[in-house]
Simulated assay, not measured.
Amino acid sequence: MEGCRLAGDPGGGRGLLARWIARGGLRQQRTGTTRFPAALVFGHFLLAAAGLVIWIVYLAADRGALAWTSFGILVAVALLGFTLFGRWLPVHRAPVPATAGEETAPAERHLPVLVVAAHGLLGAAPLVLVLLAALGVGGS
């Protein structure tokens, strides 16, 4: 699972999603072990994908409304990401009991700190770039 990052996904978002699922994130929805509701996880992922698609359409069509739509979606993606980060941090910081097995630990406990940090930091770049493009900064 460590090599889940794909080209074009420098922050490892798909890799984080794949790791969360592989470590039982979906199964843990029933037991409440995970602090990540599936709707939050998949909402973050799907909105990010939608924002990217709308941004690509903007680049092809050069319609200002599409740039602002993409920006709005990316703001929502960032808010969902901050929510996920806020739910992940206490799980990451909590001590692991010696008797806790892999299946009892929340799935998000297995997300690599470096990938989570890089995903958040690199996720800010498109938000800023889309905003600048929507404002017409550096445009022709």
Rank of each mutant, 00 (worst) to 15 (best):
M1A: 15
E2M: 13
E2Y: 09
E2F: 10
G3D: 15
C4H: 13
L6A: 15
L6C: 11
A7P: 03
A7T: 14
G8F: 10
D9G: 08
P10T: 05
G12V: 01
G13S: 14
R14E: 12
R14D: 13
L16Y: 06
L16R: 09
L17M: 12
A18V: 08
A18N: 13
W20L: 03
W20E: 04
A22H: 10
G24T: 10
L26I: 15
Q29A: 11
Q29E: 12
R30F: 11
R30T: 15
T31F: 08
T31M: 11
G32D: 09
T33K: 07
T33Y: 07
T34I: 09
T34G: 06
T34D: 06
R35N: 12
F36K: 03
P37G: 08
P37V: 10
A38K: 02
A39D: 12
A39S: 14
L40E: 03
L40Q: 03
V41D: 02
F42V: 08
G43E: 02
H44N: 15
F45M: 08
L46M: 13
A48V: 03
A49M: 06
A49S: 11
L52M: 14
V53K: 07
V53M: 10
I54K: 05
I54E: 02
I56F: 14
V57G: 03
V57P: 02
A60F: 13
A61F: 10
G64V: 13
G64D: 13
A65E: 15
A65K: 03
L66R: 09
L66T: 05
L66N: 04
A67I: 02
S70L: 08
F71H: 08
G72F: 04
I73K: 04
L74G: 01
V75I: 15
A76T: 10
A78H: 12
A78T: 14
L79P: 06
L80M: 14
T83I: 06
T83V: 14
T83N: 09
T83F: 04
L84Q: 11
L89P: 02
P90H: 07
V91R: 05
V91Y: 06
H92D: 07
H92R: 14
R93D: 15
R93E: 14
A94H: 05
P95N: 12
P95L: 12
V96E: 11
P97S: 10
T99H: 14
A100D: 13
A100H: 12
A100F: 10
A100V: 11
G101S: 13
E102V: 14
E103I: 13
A105H: 06
E108R: 01
E108P: 01
E108N: 01
H110M: 05
L111I: 07
L111A: 04
L111M: 06
P112R: 00
P112D: 08
V113M: 07
V115G: 00
V115N: 03
A117L: 07
A117T: 03
L121F: 05
L121K: 01
L122P: 02
G123F: 00
A124P: 00
A124L: 11
P126F: 00
P126T: 00
P126S: 02
V128R: 00
V128Q: 03
L129T: 00
L131E: 03
L131I: 02
L131M: 07
L132H: 01
L132M: 07
L132I: 01
A134K: 01
L135H: 07
G136P: 01
V137Q: 03
G138A: 00
G139I: 05
S140M: 09
